[in-house]
């Protein structure tokens, strides 16, 4: 049974995949930027909620726990995507022309 790499099903498919030259590149870097921005937002939100909890502004710990967990998972996803991208690049690099 083949376990699909985690990066694939979760990434949105680039709208136009091989039709324009470097089209994959343009939307891919956008995608990466979006992903990094989301990751940053998640971490900022988690930090913000943590501080708010300890100053008493936020009373429910579950909100902090949820934010931290989601930031952690987003980070994990980003790391996996990075690994897959590097693998894919290396494979292309190794191709005999």
């Amino acid at each position: 049974m083949q376990v699909l790499p985690a990066g694939q099903p979760l990434l949105p498919q680039p709208a136009v995949s091989g039709e324009k030259r470097g089209g994959g590149g343009g939307s891919f870097s956008e995608m990466l930027n979006n992903a990094l921005k989301k990751l940053n937002d998640a971490k900022v939100n988690a930090d913000d909620l943590t501080l708010k909890f300890f100053t008493g502004e936020v009373q429910d710990f579950h909100q902090v726990a949820i934010a931290m967990q989601e930031a952690s998972l987003t980070m994990q996803l980003a790391v996996e995507v990075r690994n897959k991208v590097i693998e894919a690049y290396q494979e292309v690099y190794r191709m005999q022309v």
Binding site: D60, F61, H62, A65, I66, M68, Q69, S72
Partner: peptide, 9 residues
């Protein structure tokens, strides 16, 4: 409830 919430992570 608060202790249980610690288990989310």
């Amino acid at each position: 409830m608060a202790l249980k919430a610690l288990e989310i992570g």
